[in-house]
Design a binder for these strands. Structure first.
Length: 490
RNA sequence: CGGGGUGUAGCGUAGCCCGGUAUCGCGCUUGGUUUGGGACCAAGAGGUCGUAGGUUCGAAUCCUGCCACCCCGACCA
């Protein structure tokens, strides 16, 4: 194994794959397309879960759990839903194995065929709405504000660690409401929560918008999304929030009696983010030395590397560092004092850089004599020798500064790679360099499809904050009222 | 699923064309010396050469099937 990563400029996707493996985030498993999330990677996911879960709870949501397996018939009840997911469903057909009579291990027992086949959930709208039918009779039973943390499976052709795996972890919120207005509000609220999470925790700027009909979730009336820009200029859909209208209520016959004693169908939403956010996090900030993690999600926020000769020097260092570690822990900062002897300081420096630890402190005999300590920040890789006195506050401030400055850096990058284009020639030229293109579109699915065919670029979203502006479609020249964001995407 | 490529120790590889049971580096183990940017020396351990057949006295090497992975397309959070 060579010491350094492939560079981003050289081969972006190889850089990504190698980084995921080298930083101990995840690896491929014995099952094609399925990944093993390693402890270091999983602890980042746990931090994401914690932050999101808190935000969901604060807005009145509760967690529950629904089964992994779904009767096949459920999927066909909502027409566009089945069309969207049928091609990528894993199917359970039998419930028993037996010893091969020819002695070749075990075989599926043909006697044990299921009456009705089960599918492994690609998403849970169907089981959940079949259950909501039993839970809802009156407007007093509404709203249902429920979320589940679960794994789902979509049999993808081509997979990449975190970005697209056959099995992935996510949360899926499923809410039911008495009115359309309330459901739309919920959809927008959750989009805002996702955007806030992405920006404040992941330090990743996102564009909030709506999907076009082509890109909409199978079974939704309207799909809202947050879109982020990766360092290669490609777009990554980081979260979606769907207004389901009454589609699933109608498919599963979920009705309630309103105050006026009339039967009405329930209005629904669903929203989710997945372990794909891990991929987004990696690609948003990391560099050729390895991961760059935002302090708010870093499993280890501060690492302290001692440099010493002999037991006595180590004892002197410990005497200074132990109280500092205790003080940092008291401020809920996760800190690792790495006194392992089997690796040299140089090795540790490289290792913690690879793993994206935001702040690294190094202290040796020289520092003990001078009353100093060396602080290195991961984002800029700048090292400074500082007085030991007062270092605790400097660490706290540096963590905060890293959080905001990597956000700013990502924001500047996006700004530098977002372009307004007004002619088809301009579009063709610019799309090759990556980035977001803000352009007019005539609103037809056919035009969108044609542009995708010609350039591989899709409409990432119709931004929510985009002003109305008269213009002409980039391809057809037909009138348009608003610019949309085009990009090549993951 | 179509096109291209690759499977040799935990990882990265040489050997394959031209058959004779395997090279090197990292890592690992033990001992010693080290430690301010991926330490050094010495001694070790570790391989059904992806898999199933075939050809042959003999297969990592030649032939066939299968499987897995990577890259490029179509599908997708």
């Amino acid at each position: 194994m060579s010491k350094s990563l492939p560079s981003r400029a050289e081969n972006y996707s190889e850089w990504y794959n190698e980084l995921v493996k080298r930083a101990d985030l995840a690896e491929n498993s014995a099952v094609r397309g399925c990944m093993i999330i390693k402890p270091y990677g999983y602890s980042i996911w746990e931090k994401m879960q914690r932050a999101l879960d808190d935000m969901f709870k604060e807005t009145g949501h509760v967690n529950a759990y629904f089964p992994l397996l779904i009767p096949k018939s459920f999927l066909s009840k909502e027409a566009s839903h089945v069309e969207g997911f049928a091609k990528e469903c894993a199917v359970v057909t039998h419930y028993r194995l037996k010893n091969d009579p020819n002695g070749h291990g075990v075989i599926v027992d043909p006697e044990a065929k299921l009456e009705e086949e089960l599918i492994i959930r690609p998403t849970s709208e169907t089981v959940i709405w079949s259950t909501y039918k039993n839970w809802v009779q009156s407007y007093r039973d509404l709203p249902i504000l429920m979320n589940q943390w679960a794994n789902v499976m979509r049999w993808e052709m081509r997979t990449r660690l975190f970005l697209r795996t056959a099995e992935f972890l996510w949360q899926e919120g499923h809410t039911a409401h008495a009115t359309q207005e309330e459901a739309v509000e919920e959809t927008e609220q959750m989009l805002n929560i996702y955007a806030e999470f992405a920006e404040t925790f992941m330090a990743m700027p996102v564009i909030k918008g709506r999907k076009t009909a082509n890109e909409r979730f199978a079974g939704a009336e309207d799909t809202y999304c947050i879109e982020a820009m990766m360092q290669d200029g490609k777009a990554l859909q980081a979260g979606t929030s769907h207004f389901l209208g009454q589609n699933f209520a109608k498919a599963f016959d979920v009705k309630f009696l309103n105050k006026a004693n009339q039967q009405e169908y329930v209005w629904g939403t669903s929203w989710g983010v997945s372990t794909r956010l891990m991929g987004a996090l990696i690609m948003a900030h990391s560099d050729d030395q390895g991961l760059v993690l935002p302090p708010k999600l870093a499993p280890i926020q501060v690492v302290i590397v001692p440099i010493y000769k002999g037991e006595e020097q180590l004892a002197n260092i410990k005497a200074k560092i132990d109280p500092l570690v205790a003080a940092l822990k008291k401020r809920a900062i996760s800190v690792k004092f790495d006194i392992s002897e089997n690796q040299s300081p140089g090795f540790k420096f490289a290792e913690y850089e690879l793993k994206g630890v935001p702040v690294r402190l190094a202290i040796g005999n020289r520092d003990i004599e001078n009353g100093t300590i060396e602080l290195a920040r991961r984002d800029t890789r700048v090292k400074t020798s500082l007085p030991f006195e007062g270092i605790e506050q400097v660490i706290v401030d540096t963590l905060e500064d890293i959080q905001t400055s990597i956000y700013q850096k990502a924001l500047d990058f996006r700004a530098a790679n977002t372009f307004e284009v007004n002619t088809w020639d301009e579009f063709l030229a610019k799309i090759e360099d990556g980035g977001f293109l803000s352009a007019h579109w005539d609103g037809s699915p056919e035009t969108e499809e044609k542009i995708k065919e010609l350039t591989k670029a899709t409409i990432r979203c119709i931004p929510l904050d985009s002003p109305e502006e008269a213009g002409t479609c980039i391809l057809t020249g037909k009138p348009s009222k608003q610019r949309v964001i085009f990009a090549r995407a993951y």
